[in-house]
């Protein structure tokens, strides 16, 4: 029972964090068709900028300015990099972001050194908020939950309640039509790319201090974000939301299961001594998202809630 409760709490928090990362990517991906390989690099930049700003001033200023800074860099990358490459097709754009990820990592290494920096949870939030079955649930995790929900609501209001949001929504599903209607599509692209990167940066600010802020954090987070976006379905923020929570819960729940394949498939004659039989479900947890990705793409290529195929 306690395992399940704990997995639920953690799964939701982790899932919301994933959503913060993947919502920006979904926007970018749906609108521009570009799978931004450097998206997790912007997440990393958010964490490093927050570390610098927090060192000079306070965490709260970092929470505001680090994402803005990351968003500006993202917008610049779109304006001076991606837009140029756009004429050469999607593969070129994708490869551009692929190279960009390399570049950002190396530049971060020059400025911040090659290993982890001492980016801390602010002391005001550094206390256990409650105990669940003897394990502390830190206040900072609750704070993360609130930031994620605030972001979710903010994004929803932006998309559903403002004119700009309506145009973005239209551009998500029918980018060409929006262009024909006379909207400045390049500007929308730039803005969306910037906002997407800023959201990733925000995720970096609030996650960098409970995980580790080092130059390899982008590579670590990168693939899983793709999984969320693709599983959720293109053009669908709701899908990304569901997929984030699903993957967060799946990973957390799997860890709690001690059964091995031999226990589950024992009736088929699988012995615990064999290699397949000795694999436990909990050791598979982190691999499950990729299995999900492959299965979804084969059987439901439009993703969980997407309207069109990739």
């Amino acid at each position: 029972m306690e395992t399940i409760v704990f997995a639920l709490v953690n799964g939701v928090i982790y899932g919301l964090l994933l959503f913060m990362l993947s919502s920006g990517l979904t926007l970018i991906f749906s609108m521009m068709g570009v799978l931004n390989f450097a998206h997790a690099s912007f997440y990393m930049l958010g964490a490093f900028f927050a570390y610098t700003i927090m060192g000079a001033t306070s965490f709260w200023l970092a929470l505001i300015f680090a994402p803005i800074l990351v968003g500006l860099i993202g917008a610049a990358v779109e304006r001076y990099g991606l837009r140029r490459v756009h004429v050469n097709g999607h593969v070129a754009e994708l490869l551009f972001t692929f190279g960009l990820a390399y570049l950002i990592e190396e530049i971060v290494k020059i400025f911040y050194g090659k290993t982890a920096v001492d980016y801390r949870v602010p002391s005001i939030l550094d206390f256990p908020a409650m105990q669940i079955y003897g394990v502390d649930l830190p206040a900072y995790r609750i704070f993360m939950l609130f930031v994620a929900i605030a972001m979710l609501v903010g994004l929803w209001l932006l998309l559903k309640r403002t004119r700009a949001g309506l145009i973005i929504q239209a551009a998500l599903s029918h980018p060409h039509m929006v262009g024909h209607l006379g909207h400045n599509v390049p500007l929308i692209f730039m803005a969306v790319f910037g906002i997407g990167c800023a959201l990733a940066g925000l995720a970096g600010v609030i996650a960098g201090n409970i995980f580790v802020t080092d130059p390899s954090m982008a590579v670590q987070m990168g693939p899983i974000v793709f999984v969320v976006v693709v599983v959720g379905g293109i053009g669908s923020l709701e899908g990304a939301f569901v997929a984030s929570l699903l993957i967060g819960l799946l990973q957390n729940l799997a860890v709690g299961v001690n059964a091995s394949f031999a226990d589950i498939f024992g009736f088929l004659g699988l012995s615990a001594a064999s290699e397949v039989g000795s694999i436990t479900v909990s050791s598979l947890g982190p691999v499950l998202p990729f299995l999900l990705l492959v299965l979804i793409l084969i059987f439901r290529p439009q993703g969980l809630m997407g309207e069109r195929e990739l």
């Binding site: 068709g33 693939p223 793709f226 999984v227 691999v287 990729f290 793409l297 084969i298 290529p301 990739l310």
Partner: peptide, 22 residues
């Protein structure tokens, strides 16, 4: 994986590679 082309194919290849590498 070859039933699809384009980005779907790319993503399947990514997922399969991660699975096999693990």
């Amino acid at each position: 994986s070859c039933r699809r082309a384009g980005t779907t194919f790319a993503m399947i290849s990514l997922g399969v590679a991660e699975l096999i590498a693990s």
